[in-house]
Design a protein around this nucleic acid. Structure first.
Lengths: 162, 162
DNA sequence: CCTTTATGGATGTATAATGTCCATAATAAA
DNA sequence: TTTATTATGGACATTATACATCCATAAAGG
């Protein structure tokens, strides 16, 4: 289980955009050469980010990409969910058909009396989902802007750094 | 990014063992039919768990598997690391060769003055690792015994439930 | 000895991730 | 309006990984 390389490249591309963000557009060639990947490959990633409203794209000369909203409103979780998909980290195996009875969650258990739909989930899934939520809350709290704020001062300058 | 089905099956198999755990051995056939998977497939999983000291195995008639230690000392994290491997959720892409300078962590930053080796990691990796640690601490705190303790009372009985 | 059981190698298949190429559309600049 | 520039999306090829099975072997109990 690992994050895909595409997710890493998406994050680095967004950091690049956030750095250049003066309402300017950055072309795929600048982005891809900066990351050391092919432009045909990176353009797939950027296209996903655009479909999800993370970036805007414009065609034509002096076109390219820009962030669709401020960098402090683009979280790591946003980016990961676009690239990796929104499926949960763990899904029950056989529609509960073959779980050991001990793994079945008690439907009356304390936290679940409010009638949440996950009451029927097996306890394995309950733990896995809890773990995922822990991770997601951390990823939601860290934004592209966070990276800029914590970058080494030597790296902060007007032009692009390559 | 998802946990493999093997991880889910490993967890369910261990829950089954924990339930039957009176120093008894449970054969691969009972386990695999309980989970609804083939025994040849599940035996690979059990073999990994044995190599990592999660379960013990014995051959011969009336042989089979048993937990190698109490269920409250087998965490979800233990099992996941055996089946999924111990690689980190995120690895830097190109040995730092192509990161945007802004993504480089400041080596002198506050939390890192103590000289931790991760000082050189890029900030993307730092966030991803932080997220992973959040998830791991949750998974470390939840054990096979936790599942038994939270199971519906109707499921708790002497024999196997299938 | 013979049955039962786990083990590990070899192998096959399915699915997903990675990466490239090309035709097309849209736009700004000349 | 033409032309150069740029993003887009389909099709495709290439791995890598997960999933799954079969079989020969070894170990232990009856």
């Amino acid at each position: 289980m690992q994050f895909s390389k595409s997710t890493g490249n998406a994050l680095h591309a967004l950091i690049h955009l956030a750095h250049s963000d003066r309402g300017q557009h950055v072309g795929i060639k600048e982005l891809s050469s900066s990351l050391g990947v092919s432009d045909s490959y990176l353009s797939k990633i950027m296209s996903k980010l655009r479909q999800d409203g993370i970036v805007r794209a414009s065609t034509g000369a002096s076109g390219g990409y820009e962030l669709a909203r401020p960098a402090d409103r683009i979280s790591f979780l946003d980016v990961i969910q676009v690239i990796e998909g929104r499926q949960q980290l763990y899904e029950c195996l056989n529609a509960n058909a073959h779980h050991h009875p001990l793994a079945e969650a008690a439907e009356w258990s304390e936290e679940e009396e409010s009638g949440h739909p996950e009451s029927k989930d097996c306890l394995v899934k309950k733990v896995m989902n809890g773990a995922e939520l822990q991770m997601q809350s951390y990823l939601r709290a860290h934004t592209i802007q966070w990276v800029l704020d914590h970058a080494s001062p030597g790296s902060i300058r007007g032009g692009n750094g390559e």
